[in-house]
């Protein structure tokens, strides 16, 4: 199985070529925590995490809620 380079929250990662957003979150230990995902500047709603596959050089932002004013 080939590996692809992606960028998550500004950092470079290498992941399996057939990985989905849900799979990535699972690997990062984030499934089950409140988080929202943006793929190449586009929001991926939770309902699409299982079906959204990652492609080489994808840029992801994984965000959560923090204290703020």
């Amino acid at each position: 199985m080939s590996a692809i380079p992606i960028e998550v929250n500004g950092e470079a990662y290498t992941v399996a070529a057939n990985l989905t957003v849900a799979g990535l979150l699972q690997q990062m230990g984030l499934l089950g925590r409140p988080c929202a995902v943006e793929l190449n500047g586009r929001l991926i709603p939770k309902i699409s995490w299982d079906s959204q596959a990652l492609a080489p050089n994808d840029r992801l932002e994984i965000v959560t809620l923090v204290g703020g004013g």
């Binding site: 998550v8 929250n9 990062m28 929202a36 965000v63 809620l65 923090v66 204290g67």
Partner: peptide
């Protein structure tokens, strides 16, 4: 609240 990157 604010929206920020998850600390991976």
């Amino acid at each position: 609240v604010a929206v920020r990157r998850e600390r991976l």
